[in-house]
Amino acid sequence: MTAATWLERLAHELDALGVPAADAAAIVVEAESHLGEAAADPLASFGPPAGYARLMADALAPEPSAAGTAGSVRAAGRVRARAVAVRKRYRGRTVLDGVDLTVRDGEAVLLIGPNGCGKSTLLRILAGLVRPDGGRVEVDGAVGYAPQHGGLVAQLTPCEQFVLFGRARGLSREAAVRDGCRVADQLGWDAARAPVADALSGGTRQKLSVALAALGAPDLLLLDEPYQGLDLDSAQRFWELLWDWRDRGRAALVVAHAADAIERADAVVELGGAVALRSAA
């Protein structure tokens, strides 16, 4: 990568992180100056632009204490999904009417509302399966999507499906199987010895679906009621997986009902009043 390209990317990343323009410009110029004098490869000297940008953005935000992450003051993460005034009609019925939504890195947002109010539709629009009738949708980065039902290949074993989905993200076969089995393990399920998807119970199929969505650590997780059909223990494990995902700086949007999850979510969006609210938990 040439210095010019690297600096351009750096500027872009700093902007995406919400760093004030004056600070961002100073950071870029300082790096440019350093690269000019050191005549070094930018990747060797600074690392990837995104990583350096994050380091500088973190350094800008004053830390309350050196020890640990209090979690209360987090630099605004990069926007991974944004819906602006999204509208959708199905057979003459308005399912979504001017919905606004934003999901950033380091956020787990819950989407709640009564049945039939368009939660799944909104998720599918963000995933790119359905086009909205109005409004704007932006998604930045790779997406992992788990629908409410199905989305699995009936006659393949979980490990084979890990390979099929994992290779799409550029993982090697072994890495794909390892990654999938690791997530399955977190959900309390031994995927390596499981039979074909058709022979699994409904709850186990949900776990497989979640594992396939999380495979290869996409930037944004879109999960449609993934804990449905899970027993209490497994559902708990799922929520722990989600908060862990969020704590590691990734983004997730989950269609949910669970009342206790609402307390730990970063934001809750409620559909069904034909208006989306955004409230910090």
Binding site: P147, G151, V153, R169, G216
Partner: peptide
């Protein structure tokens, strides 16, 4: 026809 269910999801997955 069987692939209809999974192909959209695989498309999102990266293929």
């Amino acid at each position: 026809l069987a692939a209809r269910e999974t192909e959209p999801r695989l498309r999102i997955g990266g293929w």
